[in-house]
Amino acid sequence: MRAKQERPAERAGPPVDLVRRGDRLILLASLPGVKPSDLRVSIVGDRQVLLEGEVAYRHPLPRENLSLGERIYGPFARTVHLPLPVDPGAAAVALQDGVLTVDMRVRAEAVHLTWQPKEAQTGERPW
């Protein structure tokens, strides 16, 4: 594992959104400055996504000579626990404009719900 504990960027890792859309579970991660060749995405089992990579320093002068240096460089790693099992073989990964998208198919059956309406005179909703 490349990650070292002393770097704040590695402890926190990149910020992540998890979005459910239909039968898909979509992970979005902000990875500004990361090239696809510097990123590794792994689905561990069917409930975890591991993001590992490095934000490389590419300015033409040494870091100590920056007038202002606020960007964080170096290796990072983050494990994201998924709320639902996914099919690791049916995942699509894309990195565009500094945002990683991991589109996964959920391995869970939708449960069909049948609501029993209450008496009409009550005017109440069934929940």
């Binding site: 992540v16 959104d17 859309r21 991660a29 945002v99």
Partner: peptide, 10 residues
């Protein structure tokens, strides 16, 4: 249009 289960990105 998605249902956000977890939201950390700005």
């Amino acid at each position: 249009d998605g249902l956000y289960i977890q939201r950390e990105r700005f």
